[in-house]
Write a protein that binds this DNA or RNA. Structure first.
Length: 563
RNA sequence: UGCCCUGUGGUGUAAUUGGCAACACGUCUGACUCUGGAUCAGAAAAGUCUAGGUUCGAGCCCUAGCAGGGCAGCCA
């Protein structure tokens, strides 16, 4: 920790966004004794997605940058929607993203007793009352956006009555929906949140941590600010839709006279070609349009992880997406850029043929095997080299040969030459076809003078293609993913339901791709660049000791196929 | 037609708090290259929602509009 007043900022740490500016100001004025304490407060009712990741990175990043603290807190105030499965996945995701909450993992439900006591305090102050109206009646009296509401006939019960009724609510004397506790504020407020909001509702349901201890549960509006207050959070960062609620949180905290955090709202991240709402993601999962929350096509953290994304890439993406108060839709290309940039520097290179075409090298001795040197990563010489076997029969990519090539094509053509990566230049001498006229095999000759790495390059060819040795190659399943939706903003379409806009070709499974032998022993989660294809990682769900399954994380940039 | 928030290249963010708009992604050229990758060089692309006003000077301030978003769950 830096103690003087011109701290680490002297190293001209530019304010990253408007939230940093606010905190810088608070540090200057000593608003929170120069303390910074943030938190990530998810409800455990679904898996985390890339938008949550942005919030985690923001909150954790702030704590780290100001030498402060960061809490993980489950906002588990609704037993009907929350599950332990979600709690576990969220903890895993936050840790994986690097959000270090140390031992500070909290649950709102652990504060229920304290919240109850505070509610009693408000009742005693005449600031809260038990209402017998049902949900419809309450909505009726709440008024509309343009008309003020009307007061409930139960609004002026005595303190003693309210105390008694509230206690009996807790004891379970009433059925769901029979009574609620409301704050007594102002039924005519232009801010609807202040029209006597509900603080407690009766829910006879099993809570994933509290069991049946409680049958009254605090609403988010009542609970959330208290949770932050209890944990002495300094800056309660949340999304825009809670801006209108801030006056309410302020009201509660002031009436109670307790510690008061500063809430700051920012716009959530949206990503194009996908949907982000938990409800919609849940629908995709439940109706089996995807293979679970971690299906690699999903925008969830667990899916991105399974697909091969690194935490670093996700952090870079959220950093580059920026934090502001206006609604935004981030470009999927930025996400792809962030993972390419990261994996380019660290991924082991390998060769894999997805759609094989056989080549016989007629002047290469039958039965002979030559071990060739291949670079593991041209971006990082420290990663060394490896040996790959070369022999008379090899496979190349079907798309790397064309009988009638368009202009600009510089791979193999009849009578043409091309370099085999890390091997020799070959020439296509003969095209073998089946009865249907389809090309099934090529006969080529190789030029022994052109071996890679010998420095002799008297011959120049325009193309270099990848290959695998027929008898050495290993079979593997490869899964190619494309965007989940066909349109940029699937939930913006007013005519069509987002389910109609799913991309039918978002998954292509290649059961028998051929990979170089080195990859045989790769393990779940290992990441590779298949040269000229893209980055791939070993699937953690379907890979078995018998069969390797690779997920394509992202393609390489391809300036040819666009033309 | 109430209250709150927001309007800067295709996308996202920035502009020393009033000094003629910058960065990243994307796009397009060209160079280089044994990955049509990477890298390097360059280009196109906004005059800052509109109209007034203050000022020597406005993306930043004022006024009025317009547009987009949020709010009428006993969800969060």
């Amino acid at each position: 920790m830096n103690n003087n007043n011109t701290p680490e900022n002297t190293s001209e740490k530019k304010p990253k966004n408007f939230i940093y500016e606010i905190i810088d100001e608070d540090m200057k004025t000593g608003k929170f004794e120069k303390r910074v304490h943030t938190r990530f407060p998810p409800e455990p009712n679904g898996y985390l997605h890339i938008g949550h990741a942005a919030s985690i990175c923001l909150n954790y990043g702030i704590a780290r940058d100001y030498n402060g603290k960061f809490n993980l807190r489950f906002d588990d105030t609704n037993p009907e929607k929350e599950e332990i499965e979600y709690v576990e996945s969220i903890i895993q995701d936050v840790k994986w993203l690097g959000g270090d909450f140390e031992d500070r993992i909290f649950y709102a439900s652990d504060y229920f007793e304290q919240m109850y006591n505070w509610a009693v305090e408000l009742i005693k102050k005449g600031k809260a009352y038990v209402d017998d109206l049902n949900a419809d009646e309450i909505r009726e009296l709440r008024g509309t956006l343009t008309e003020p509401g009307k007061e409930s006939p139960f609004r002026n019960r005595t303190v003693d009555q309210n105390l008694d009724l509230f206690e009996r609510m807790r004891k379970g004397e009433y059925k769901n929906g029979e009574k609620v506790l409301r704050a007594k504020i102002d039924m005519a407020s232009p801010n609807l949140n202040l029209r006597d909001p509900i603080m407690y509702r009766i829910v006879h349901a099993e809570h994933h941590r509290q069991g049946s201890k409680w049958c009254i549960y605090p609403t988010y509006d009542w609970a959330h600010g208290l949770e932050d207050s209890i944990e002495r959070i300094t800056h309660s960062i949340c999304t825009l839709e809670f801006e209108n609620h801030r006056p309410l949180y302020d009201w509660f905290l002031n009436e109670l006279g307790v510690y008061h955090p500063q809430q700051i709202e920012f716009a959530r991240i949206n990503l194009n070609y996908t949907v982000m709402s938990k409800r919609k993601l849940l629908k995709l999962v439940q109706e089996k349009y995807v293979d679970g929350w971690d299906d690699p096509r999903m925008p969830t953290v667990s899916a991105l992880r399974r697909r091969g994304y690194t935490p670093e890439a996700i952090r870079n993406f959220t950093d580059n997406s920026g934090i502001a108060k206006r609604d935004k839709v981030s470009d999927y290309a930025l996400l792809e850029f962030s993972i390419r940039e990261d994996l380019n520097k660290r991924a082991q290179r390998a060769m894999a043929v997805l759609h094989p075409l056989k080549i016989v090298i007629t002047n290469f001795p039958d039965g002979e095997v030559e071990e060739l040197d291949a670079v593991n990563n041209p971006e990082d010489p420290d990663m060394g080299t490896r040996k790959i076997p070369f022999s008379r029969e090899i496979f190349v990519e079907q798309t790397d040969f064309m009988e009638n090539p368009p202009k600009g094509y510089h791979r193999l053509i009849p009578g043409g030459e091309v370099r085999l990566r890390y091997a020799y230049i070959i020439k296509c001498e003969e095209v073998i076809k089946n009865e249907k006229g389809e090309v099934v095999e090529l006969h080529c000759t190789f030029d022994p003078e052109t071996k890679s790495g010998t420095g002799i390059s008297k011959k120049k060819v325009k193309g270099t293609i990848h290959w695998v040795s027929a008898k050495h190659a290993v079979e593997a399943e490869v899964r190619l993913y494309d965007r989940l939706f066909m349109v940029e903003q699937p939930d913006a379409d007013k005519e069509k339901d987002f389910m109609e806009l799913l991309n039918p070709n978002s998954l292509e499974i290649i059961p028998n791709a051929l990979i170089e032998p080195l990859l045989k022993d790769s393990k779940s989660g290992d990441r590779f660049q298949f040269e000229r294809h893209g980055y791939f990682s070993v699937d953690t769900k379907y890979t078995t000791s018998e069969k390797l399954v690779f997920n394509r994380t992202v393609t390489l940039k391809d300036s040819w196929s666009k033309k």
